[in-house]
């Protein structure tokens, strides 16, 4: 029982480190798309591990925490995808390091046609 508690605490610590990596990535990345990548990925696993560690420490909370983890895994990629699309259609360009942009080639006309429809 004691071992499980220590293991839970260590898992929580690893999770908080991943949250820290997400924050560093958010600060260091050069453009919005790379920031979304760093922010969402690392913070997803970070919060999953943080919650799982506490779930191991308190086994009677585990079901609720599992529900929370499932919700995070479903919702986090959706919000990052929506933000990426919003950034693209708001006209924010990727950094100069980006050497291939197929989406821009294909949807050059899309924002204007969208407005005409309304």
């Amino acid at each position: 029982m004691e071992h499980l508690k220590i293991a839970g605490a260590i898992i929580t610590l690893i999770g908080s480190l991943f949250v820290l990596f997400a924050a560093i990535g958010l600060l260091r990345m050069p453009d919005i798309y790379n920031r979304i990548q760093a922010g969402t990925k690392a913070s997803t696993l970070g919060s999953i591990l943080t919650l799982l560690g506490i779930g191991l420490y308190h086994p009677d909370w585990l079901l609720k925490i599992m529900l929370l983890i499932v919700f995070i895994v479903i919702s986090n990629p959706v919000s990052s995808h929506v933000l990426g699309r919003a950034a693209h259609f708001a006209g924010i360009l990727p950094s100069e390091k980006t050497h291939t942009n197929k989406l821009k080639e294909d949807t050059l006309e899309t924002p204007t046609t969208k407005e005409e429809k309304k």
Binding site: G25, M29, Y33, Q37, L45, K102, D106
Partner: peptide
């Protein structure tokens, strides 16, 4: 893949030269 993704991302973020080569593909 999720666990692998996070280690790759951590390595990229922590390396001083920031080795990224981004692009949008079909």
């Amino acid at each position: 893949e999720l666990i692998k993704a996070n280690f790759v991302m951590a390595k990229t973020v922590l390396s001083p030269s920031l080795p990224i080569n981004p692009g949008i593909v079909r």
